[in-house]
Write a protein that binds this DNA or RNA. Structure first.
Lengths: 163, 163
DNA sequence: CGAACGGTTAGCATCACACGAACTAACGTC
DNA sequence: GACGTTAGTTCGTGTGATGCTAACCGTTCG
């Protein structure tokens, strides 16, 4: 049983990998049209998981000084992708937030294969779609259980939608 | 029927989006540790779909001159991420190839949520895994049909494994 | 009040990219 | 073979982003 299960897991992961390969490198990806540097992208990614993070903490994640980070954030703010606010309890602290435009551009970059994938979904018969829905629902349940075990934050919309 | 199907498609896509959100912004992503600029990353992405592409075509995709591209490729070659070869029929033409190291780093960047995803798969019961396998197989079939219709190249390992 | 802290600014250096110009090798046509 | 065109590389120049240290200012805390 375990051997069969391992083979099954492997088959699933291999198939997934292949699909991902097909989608991941879509050259219509937003990354080709957006004007972001790597450090800017890294900050945006960090803000997705830690919106409102203080600058000091960002410097630790990025491994740069406050002076450098200040410049990076300046330029993100100038692009409209991030905003700065003062901490409520300590006015020295600047909290850096992802702006709606920043979130949007990041979503577009990360959703690189979405359009192609939607084309594929439209080709599936209803039975397969229902199966996929079941699987995804169980995966989301597993994700929530996993997150609980890891003590990891779950995005609000994920959590509120479970009920 | 169509209304039901549309609702089903929407549910599937929404669930997928949620899962993707969970995985996409993992800050252990290789992107935080690799020393690549955006233009270099773009070239690597392009090479994944068009390995051995002539320089001239790369300039069109990137929207830069040959002089600029030459520098970018120089640095990718220096990093060990790409190689240059001469075209077999026209010795003026340089074909740019993704190196194994280049492919590896790109795979690591794109597979940002892979470890977390494997943890989730291990939580699924066999029935769900079998359903997932069926779905993925059908998705791959759809992908191949889609690619044929679009006249798009399929990576060799995808094609050879269908038989 | 003074020391410590968080963030910003200025100055400087480096790197990558971007372009046009110049150059060389290669190709195709006459 | 001569010639015009093409593909790519190199060079020089300029720009922007990043990276650091030092100085500065406002804020916090003992």
């Amino acid at each position: 049983m375990t051997i069969h299960r391992n083979a099954l897991l492997l088959r699933v992961m291999t198939a997934e990998q292949r699909l991902r390969t097909l989608f991941a490198y879509d050259r219509t990806n937003r990354i080709f049209s957006v004007n972001l540097t790597m450090q800017q992208l890294k900050v945006l990614i960090l803000l997705t998981r830690h919106d409102g993070i203080p600058s000091q903490e960002l410097t630790r994640h990025l491994g740069v000084t406050l002076a450098t980070l200040s410049g990076i954030v300046d330029r993100l703010v100038a692009h409209g992708y991030a905003t700065r606010t003062e901490d409520l309890h300590d006015r020295r602290i600047r909290r850096i937030h992802l702006s709606p435009a920043g979130r949007e551009v990041l979503t577009e970059i990360m959703d690189s294969g979405n359009r192609a994938q939607q084309r594929l979904l439209a080709r599936l018969d209803d039975e397969t779609l229902l199966m996929l829905e079941t699987v995804l629902t169980r995966l989301l349940d597993a994700a929530r259980a996993d997150a609980l075990e890891q003590g990891v934050d779950i995005p609000d919309d994920l959590e509120s939608h479970s009920h």
